[in-house]
Write a protein that binds this DNA or RNA. Structure first.
Lengths: 249, 249
DNA sequence: AAGTGGTCTAGACCACTTC
DNA sequence: AAGTGGTCTAGACCACTTC
């Protein structure tokens, strides 16, 4: 039995072209993730349970879950179940952190907060984070080091309303984990723009190098499950012993 | 009927762990692509035909073809058929060429050959391209420009035995298309390592800029369908009006 | 109208994990 | 032994393209 018409009505998509059942199931399950029905690391109900509950076949649920696994939203483990993806350091490291030592080793850098402030968003922040006028942002400046050697200075801007109280918290190394755990905000994808630049005076001091040295500037916008801007981060990286790894197929 | 045992024997994989049927079908179809049974742009037989020929269900063929489509090896078009992926400029541009104008426009740069030579591979080339001692390489140096402005100098190394006669050919803008059409070599994936560097004297002259200017160095290794090294390319890019775009999820 | 890939179902069995 | 996801089949029907 094909219930796509009913589900389409439930999801509120009338005749916007053809939208297959498994897509609707996927969208409904993502909505539940957004709503925090299951916390990161928790198992979802089994395929059979979800199929019965949603009134579709197990195969359709499987196709929806496979699509979500391909998007790194859930993790599937044969014999165990399907789990909400977690933002632990290991995942961040392989999914979003592309800097690798020239010897091939990946090391997650330690962080030290250099400065933190809250203020009205400036024009660039409003445009990048798609903020309404007068929205406040939290600005964080951090120095990141590997084996004690400073390699990255980063300037982070966050929409204050999305992260109430964050400015007063102790900040961990892995901010994405904090966003997920404390604010229910999941970073699902990022867009990074890379350029080569000369290090400016200020950054040079923080990095213990000379002004004018070449550095890799990474301008990153992080998006939530709902594709809303969550964080804008501009990093300046010394790439003497590191490189940015990009694998394409 | 499940014929996985038979196919496993055909493929010569005995008890190397479990290897599902659709995987074996995928591997056999990739072998045919490597052998040039179907040329780029040509349609494969329909799912039903392949299923009958290989003695598996249509669903299993579908799963194999879907996996190949996810790897960009074939293109599937509803109502028309499944086609061998082509290395046309448009595909290269979106799949392997990550430099985008700061205005968001993608422009495939024009190329001019600055130099070409054939010689025994040096140690670095042997190591990177996994070549036997005394193997010869073709070295190409090109200048690439957008709207007439030079933005990239690239140094390319190719294993001579894989591309016999290439050194004497007229070289098009899009080398990957040439490799596929004239030598049956498909670039299926690349690994890029990015660093920020200072432009050296020689490159500065070619790029009409000053030595010491910051530039993005892209060290790219291209692999074939069989994951053999095909091309080593080191590009030095001026990123004043361009950036390298990396989208992660 | 005929042919293609895309979706959906139902059911059998397998690989793997947990108890 | 029981439960999970993974594979495979067979068959119906749909969306889309071509003739």
């Amino acid at each position: 039995m094909n219930e796509s018409k009913e589900l389409a009505e439930v999801a509120g998509a009338e005749s916007l072209g053809f939208r297959p059942l498994y897509r609707q199931v996927r969208d409904r399950l993502i909505r539940r993730l957004v709503d925090g029905v299951w916390a990161p690391g928790e198992p979802l109900p089994s395929e059979i349970q979800l199929a019965a509950e949603l009134g579709v076949s197990q195969g359709t649920v499987r196709k929806a879950l496979d699509a979500m696994a391909a998007e790194n939203l859930v993790v599937r483990r044969q014999g165990r179940g399907t789990f909400v993806a977690r933002h632990d350091e290991e995942r961040i490291m392989f999914q979003f952190f592309k800097l690798v030592g020239d010897d091939g080793r990946r090391t997650f850098p330690q962080s030290r907060v250099l400065g933190l402030s809250v203020a009205k968003a400036n024009a660039a922040e409003r445009a990048t984070l798609k903020l309404a006028k007068d929205t406040r942002v939290i600005r964080i400046r951090r120095l990141r080091s590997i084996d004690g050697a400073p390699v990255i200075v980063e300037n982070i801007a966050l929409p204050e309303p999305m992260f109430p109280g964050l400015a007063a918290m102790e900040l961990p190394n892995n901010l994405y984990g904090l966003y997920a755990m404390r604010f229910g905000v999941t970073v699902a994808s990022t867009r990074e723009q890379l350029k080569a630049v000369s290090v400016c005076e200020t950054d040079a001091k923080a990095l213990s190098t000379e002004a004018g040295a070449p550095a890799l500037k990474i301008d990153r916008l992080a998006l939530s499950l709902e594709r809303q801007p969550v964080e804008w981060r501009v990093s300046v990286c010394l790439t003497d012993k590191l490189h940015y790894l990009s694998e394409l197929r």
